[in-house]
Design a protein around this nucleic acid. Sequence first.
DNA 1: TGAATGATCACG
DNA 2: GTGATCATTCAT
Length: 206
Amino acid sequence: MPRKLTACFFERPTLEVARELLGKYFVVKRSGGILSGKIVETEAYIGEDDLACHASKGRTPRTETLYAKAGSLYVYMVYGMHHCLNVVTERVNFPSAVLIRAIEPCEGIALMQKRRGTKSLHNLASGPGKLCEAFGITVKVNGKTMRESGLWIEDRGERTRPADIAQSSRIGVDYAGKYSTYPWRFYVKKSSFISRISGRKGGDNG
DNA sequence: TGAATGATCACG
DNA sequence: GTGATCATTCAT
């Protein structure tokens, strides 16, 4: 029996949440049906000190959601074309979140293929912008809770062994000084559904 | 390797 | 108001 993750799952250190989200299932329920997939890649963004975190600029209209309660959705548009989906973590007024970067498609594949304009399962949700397009996630849900948005993350009882988890530096944040080298990206080592097939620098697991 | 494409924020 | 920048993707 799947168990929906509740706010308390996210009210914890962001690195723990990012690691433990691997192997959980992201589910979107719409009138058209159910879309789901297994999370295989995440990144942690932690506090105003983290120069890669949007909140490093402080509290602004855009970053307000990062200061909200754990389990809130932080969705923004990047490069004028793509959306990125985050789940807020830790305590209220501490700006942190986990970016969902890649998902292995499970249910609703036909709709994902239609939205993405490709048949390739490996090209449906293997990147933060791709998965938002496949699952129909837009800034309309920014600041809302998962329940309010008709989506959730659930535990289907699959155990992701520590040996199967790899870490690397985060992608696309070269501007962030030393923070660009922190191994705050987590992914399922043997998954072929991550955004980049091989990891880079950083540790092994942990 | 570079174009696409628009929200956001620091300026003043 | 203006301009630089951007947690990406895709075609060249």
